[in-house]
Design a protein around this nucleic acid. Structure first.
Length: 175
DNA sequence: CTTTGGATCGTCT
DNA sequence: GACGATCCAAAGG
């Protein structure tokens, strides 16, 4: 359960409030569906590492590899509540992020805000090599997490594998 | 508030 | 050669 864990890069940190699950080779919507390639190699590795990919010619998205070595299961980080390093986040995001709640309210946004790019692909989030760490500040997972279909997919979007903290700051807009 | 279209390029077919 | 686990600005209500 990643909800309410904390992702930090240097002085910048945010609480994970929205995620989506991808079930490796069994999931038509997963990058791992058509087997291992140079791009998705990290997903096929051990859990606890960061899988970062580039899409739409301009955005990065970050996943946490969660299945055992070889399973290629991963969880996409879709939304964070900004906790620290807000000034740095604003500088990285630019004028488009008018309110604090806009800083990390989307998969591409949170990567831009935290300064995560392809160079961080494969980083170990537990020991924090590369400067990106996944931590726990004692906040328990939500008593009742919200659930919905996944967003932005052309296949298997109806599978209810999007989980979020109801009412939290930093959720991407739901449909 | 909602809807719509453009930007932009690495990766796989 | 096509398309994507997206975002944003602009335009209309």
């Amino acid at each position: 359960m990643l909800l309410n864990k904390v992702l930090a890069h240097g002085a910048r940190a945010g609480r994970i409030v929205e995620v989506e699950a991808y079930a490796g080779a069994l999931d038509p919507a997963s990058h791992a569906y058509r087997g291992r390639t140079a791009r998705n190699a990290t997903m096929f590795g051990p859990p606890g590492h960061l899988y970062v990919y580039f899409t739409y010619g301009m955005h990065f998205c970050a996943n946490v590899v969660c299945g055992p070595d070889g399973a290629a299961s991963a969880v996409l980080l879709r939304g964070l509540t900004p906790l620290a390093g807000l000034e740095e986040m604003r500088a990285a995001r630019g004028p488009a992020a008018r309110r604090d709640r806009d800083l990390c309210s989307g998969p591409g946004k949170l990567c831009q805000a935290l300064g995560i790019d392809r160079a961080f692909d494969g980083a170990d989030l537990v020991i924090g090599d590369g400067g990106v760490v996944l931590g726990d500040d004692g906040t328990p997972p939500p008593r009742a997490a919200g659930v919905s279909g996944r967003i932005g997919l052309s296949v298997a979007a109806d599978v209810p594998w999007r989980f979020y903290v109801p009412g939290a700051v930093g959720l991407s807009r739901s449909r």
